[in-house]
């Protein structure tokens, strides 16, 4: 046994909240600091929570939120008296949804080429893995330095053209990534 698989249950605290009109928010909820919304840390203070409401403070103003209804991952909240409906997903389920959508915007091929001549030291991911933007895919040793090659976008790892120990030239194709727009 002892076979380990790369895919993990997604408990990454990164979520996508999408409104009916298609407007999206990428929300990261770190355990002990301010939420990061669309890659920007926001100075939003969670003041209190009672049975009925959530009270936030942001930019010197108070925001009264109330949970109106929940149906699985569809949540309607009322902020300052106005309702907003969101459907929520973890990043990975969102990514997969994008793939079900036939006319999604995911078909961009992103080919990662070697930025310099060197040797592949390690490959962290396997074909078919889901990656987040900036996540390291493989490690390339060049000029006595190990460089991590990272994902240029959120997506799925396609074909991996190299293997560990292989030497590569500049602009050699390393990995194909199918991007999914988040």
């Amino acid at each position: 046994m002892g076979t380990s698989y790369i895919y993990k249950r997604d408990a990454s605290r990164l979520f996508i909240a999408m409104r009916e009109n298609g407007k999206r928010f990428k929300i990261y909820l770190p355990k002990e600091s301010m939420p990061v919304i669309d890659n920007m840390e926001q100075d939003i203070n969670f003041i209190e929570q009672s049975d009925f409401q959530y009270l936030f403070e942001w930019k010197g103003k108070r925001y009264n939120c109330e949970l109106v209804s929940r149906d699985q991952n569809k949540t309607t909240v009322k902020v300052n008296g106005v309702e907003y409906k969101f459907s929520l997903e973890s990043l990975f389920s969102y990514v997969r949804h994008g793939m079900i959508d036939k006319d999604g915007k995911q078909t961009d091929e992103n080919n990662i080429k070697s930025p310099m001549p060197g040797k592949i030291v390690d490959i962290f991911l396997a074909e078919g893995d889901l990656v987040n933007v900036g996540e390291p895919i493989l490690s390339l040793e060049a000029m006595k330095m190990q460089n991590e090659i990272t994902a240029p976008c959120n997506g799925v790892i396609g074909k991996i053209h190299v293997s560990t120990g292989q030497s590569v030239m500049k602009d050699d194709l390393l990995v194909e990534v199918t991007s999914i727009d988040v």
Partner: peptide, 16 residues
């Protein structure tokens, strides 16, 4: 096998 499956299933929006 797992890698092959991953490519096939992920592109259908499914998991292996």
């Amino acid at each position: 096998m797992e890698a092959n499956a991953a490519v096939k299933q992920h592109l259908k929006g499914k998991l292996t």
